[in-house]
């Protein structure tokens, strides 16, 4: 499997009323591995994830998934069914449902009306739910309303939901935002673990976090690919330093 691309973005362009948030971005992902997506504010990182998961439609270029499925032509729920999971910046769980119900809905399953009318939690599914509750540290809270959880717990619940979706490609937008140092550490380890058998893309601003857990880093700037490499290569790169620190401008002054 390894070596074959699960996702190929070619010349992807996304524009909002003429403003091009992403212009001609290229990105290729293998079927497994953790990829960090970094870049200064407004570089188009989140917009790129939005384009992949169908939230926005690209105005140009192509996004091909697996054996050439064109994601630009699919609706969000179809893309999700194809095995692409997405986590947004703010934790988005269903506040009036219990923790358990949140996970139950996320679980990989048939998602048609008739299927959900008849669905019953099988013993095996119950066990998986319990195991997932354990993993994300919410065991014993399964009957609590998700809306009553703390910010960090909500983040974890959402990660648990994403894992139960069993995606082949996971897109995460600042998963560690608002977490304590220990939780951040735990998140990083979890990400490395799950990236062993699926592709994971993480948009992140916390450089410490990226340094600790990144194997491959993609740097975006002004909607384009700036460079791709290991964290050491990226840190040593002059252009990267320039866009982050405005070095040349300072030198020119």
């Amino acid at each position: 499997m390894s070596g074959k691309a699960i996702l190929q973005c070619k010349d992807v362009t996304v524009s909002f009323d003429g403003f091009k948030a992403v212009q001609g971005m290229n990105l290729s992902l293998e079927a497994s591995g953790l990829r960090f997506l970094i870049g200064p504010n407004g570089a188009g990182k989140t917009t790129l994830l939005d384009a992949i998961c169908g939230k926005v439609k690209p105005s140009g270029g192509s996004i091909l998934y697996r054996d050439g499925i064109d994601l630009a032509r699919r609706k969000e729920h179809q893309i999700a069914e194809l095995g692409i999971g997405r986590k947004f910046q703010a934790p988005s769980i269903f506040p009036t449902l219990t923790v358990e119900e949140n996970l139950e809905l996320a679980m990989k399953q048939k998602r048609g009306i008739l299927a959900t009318l008849r669905a019953k939690l099988a013993a095996a599914e119950r066990e998986r739910l319990a195991a997932q509750l354990e993993t994300v540290g919410l065991a014993g809270r399964q009957r609590a309303r998700a809306g009553s959880l703390s910010h960090g717990e909500k983040q974890w619940l959402e990660i648990g939901m994403l894992l139960l979706q069993e995606p082949s490609l996971l897109l995460l937008d600042e998963p560690a935002a608002g977490m304590t140092d220990r939780e951040t550490e735990k998140t990083g380890e979890l990400l490395q673990e799950i990236a062993k058998d699926r592709a994971v893309v993480v948009v992140e601003h916390d450089m410490e976090f990226v340094r600790n857990f990144a194997s491959l880093v993609t740097v975006m700037h002004e909607g384009r690919l700036l460079m791709e490499g290991t964290m050491d290569q990226v840190q040593a790169d002059d252009r990267v330093a320039e866009v982050y620190l405005g070095k040349r401008r300072e030198a020119a002054c």
Binding site: H77, A80, S92, L97, E104, L105, R111, I113, L117
Partner: peptide
Amino acid sequence: SRFGKVLRAIRDGENRVRFLGYDPSRY
């Protein structure tokens, strides 16, 4: 039923339901 849970989930956040792979409009 789970159908009912999806309905309540739509009330809470229609978009999130969509990104789980459900088609809210059918529900």
